[in-house]
Each structure stands twice: as structure tokens, then as C-alpha cells.
């Protein structure tokens, strides 16, 4: 049982086992994610510039039809190709991205702010206020939100504000729920108790501890809501209560592409989709990087303090 023990020395010749010095596995973890933040910022800047500058520089009315140029594949004249009415897709994607980004960003921010206000109020005030607010949230969740959105949007058909309102007012409830849960767990932490013991008021606890604690959730919900709002806007447009069909948005463009892809016009689908995916990914990466900045203990993955 002992003689074949090559790996388990009994009587140790130190020199043999100490040298040579080799480390394994020596994966150097440094710098893995340093490029994420600049990349995401870069992509977003490019997208926003694209959306703002192209329609302005091109000088082409995105609604202007040119049936002679209809259904062209990408070429030097039309980088993204043209649609069935001969309209240049570079211009239309840029215009669509601008409208969609605007609608989606406003929706996401409004829904998140509303959700945070309601969630934090419910958690901090508690008692009857909490119960009333949370039952309201439950009630809203019980109604299919597309249905509710259609009702709101239909009241001012075709107005961009109505589209924003119909999406924002139906999406804050999830945020409120998550923020309330997060705030409730933080509220009972010892460091909040320490603030109270040092004479802190509810307002101080809210501003110093609760808001910073829910900020990462809020950022994440903005990131998740942005692409969702783009889809919602397209659904409303499709149902005829959103943006008018001549007004390009990523939603209406994708709606167009749905039929064109069947006849092999891949570019009508690919370029608006790429714009949407790039936007989503950049916003998600940005929010993840921002979250890491908000949580100092996430910055170095292996805590020294934990190595007890």
C-alpha cells in the first residue's frame, strides 16, 4: 500500500518537493471586463449620432417614395437597400431608431421613476399606505397590459405622447414590486438601524441608504424596459393605435419586414433588427457596468475580507 505511492511522499526530501516552483492554473484574471464600459458607451454614441445625423444630413424625406428604386438589395447607393416603396433604408432605419429610442427611453424612465416612487413609498411608510399601493399594483397586473395600453393609446390616436403614456403607465408595476422588495430588505439591515441610533430620520435613511440600494435595480429595469418598450410601440402601431404607418419607427419597420422576408428581402429585416439588438445590448452592458460601479464590493470579484 505504500511503495507505489509516488504522489504521497512519507519521508520528505524537501529539496525535491519544493523546487521547481510552478504555479497552476495561472489564469491572469486582470482586465477582463475593462473594455465593456467604453464599448457600450461607444456603441450608444454611434447609434444616437446615426439616428440624429443621418436624417438631417441625407436631406431625403423618409416618406418620399421612389417606386423605380423599389426592393433593391444593399448596394453602394443604398447601403441598407430600399423598401417596397423605393425608400432608402439607411434613412428610414435612422429615422425609425430616433423615434423608437425617444419613445422607449421616455417610457422606460417614466415607468422606472414611477415604480421607484411607489415602491419606496410603500416600503418606507408601510402600514395601510403599503397595502393600498400594493393592491393597486396587483389590480393593474391583473388586467392584460396590452389591452390597457390599447385603451390609453386609442384615446389620442396617433399621438406620440399617447403611445408613451400607454406603455409607461402599464409597466411601472413590476418596477414598484422589485424596488419595494429591495427596500424592505435594506430597511431592516443593521446599518440602517445604526443610522436610526445616530438620530437619523426617515428622510436620511431614504436618501443615504435606500435610494442608493435600489439604484442598481432601477438601472436594470430601465435596461430591460428599453427593448420591451420598442416592441410594445411596434405592437401598438401594428394594431393601428400607435404611430401612423408613414411614420417610421423600428417597430413599423420590423412590421414591414415581416412580410418582405417571405420574398427573400432579408435586408428589410436585418438592418432594423441590428439597430434594435445593438441598442439593447449596449444599454444592458452599460447598466451592468454602472451597477458594478454602484456596488464597490463587486469591483474585485474575490473579497479579501472573506478569506478568513
Amino acid at each position: 500500500m505504500t511503495s507505489e505511492l509516488t504522489a504521497v511522499p512519507r519521508a520528505i526530501d524537501r529539496s525535491r518537493w519544493r523546487a521547481p516552483v510552478t504555479w497552476r492554473p495561472a489564469r491572469v484574471p486582470g482586465g477582463r471586463r475593462r473594455w465593456v464600459l467604453p464599448l457600450c458607451v461607444g456603441v450608444l454614441v454611434v447609434l444616437v449620432l446615426f439616428a440624429v445625423v443621418v436624417p438631417w444630413v441625407a436631406g431625403i424625406d423618409p416618406r418620399q417614395t421612389a417606386l423605380a428604386d423599389a426592393n433593391q438589395a444593399p448596394s453602394w447607393d443604398h447601403w441598407f437597400g430600399t423598401d417596397q416603396a423605393g425608400r432608402d433604408l439607411v434613412v428610414r432605419v435612422a429615422e425609425g431608431l430616433r423615434v423608437s429610442l425617444l419613445v422607449a427611453a421616455v417610457c422606460a424612465v417614466v415607468a422606472t421613476v414611477l415604480g421607484c416612487v411607489v415602491g419606496l413609498t410603500a416600503a418606507v411608510v408601510g402600514g395601510r399606505t403599503d397595502r393600498v399601493l400594493m393592491r393597486t399594483v396587483d389590480g393593474l397586473n391583473a388586467v392584460p397590459h396590452l389591452l390597457l395600453g390599447i385603451v390609453i393609446a386609442a384615446m389620442w390616436k396617433g399621438a406620440i405622447l399617447a403611445v408613451i403614456a400607454s406603455i409607461a403607465l402599464t409597466h411601472w408595476t413590476q418596477v414598484a414590486r422589485i424596488v419595494r422588495a429591495q427596500a424592505l430588505t435594506v430597511r431592516t439591515r443593521d446599518y440602517v438601524l445604526a443610522t436610526v441610533s445616530l438620530g437619523g430620520s426617515r428622510r436620511q435613511v431614504l436618501v443615504r441608504h435606500l435610494l442608493p440600494a435600489v439604484a442598481p435595480q432601477a438601472l436594470l429595469s430601465v435596461a430591460l424596459l428599453l427593448p420591451h418598450a420598442v416592441w410594445h410601440e411596434s405592437a401598438l402601431s401594428f394594431l393601428g393605435v400607435g404611430l401612423p404607418p408613414d411614420r417610421p419607427s423600428l417597430g413599423t419597420l420590423l412590421e414591414d419586414a415581416r412580410t418582405r422576408i417571405l420574398v427573400g428581402q432579408w435586408w428589410t429585416l436585418v438592418f432594423p433588427s441590428l439597430a434594435l439588438i445593438a441598442t439593447t445590448a449596449a444599454v444592458a452592458g452599460l447598466s451592468a457596468a454602472a451597477r458594478d460601479r454602484l456596488l464597490p464590493h463587486r469591483r474585485t470579484e474575490v473579497g479579501v475580507g472573506g478569506a478568513a
Binding site: E4, T22, W23, R27, P29, V302
Partner: peptide, 23 residues
């Protein structure tokens, strides 16, 4: 150990089936 760790040396586990736990 977490995946970012590196080790050197030997940890011999004796028994009917001896084994270096680090390797």
C-alpha cells in the same frame, strides 16, 4: 477554490487509492 485561484505543492491523500488532491 474560486476559478481565479492558483496553487502549487502537493496534497497527498492516503488510502487504498492514493491521490494528489491538487493534481
Amino acid at each position: 477554490l474560486p476559478p481565479t485561484a492558483r496553487v502549487r505543492g502537493q496534497v497527498g491523500l492516503d488510502g487504498p487509492d492514493p491521490l494528489d488532491l491538487l493534481a
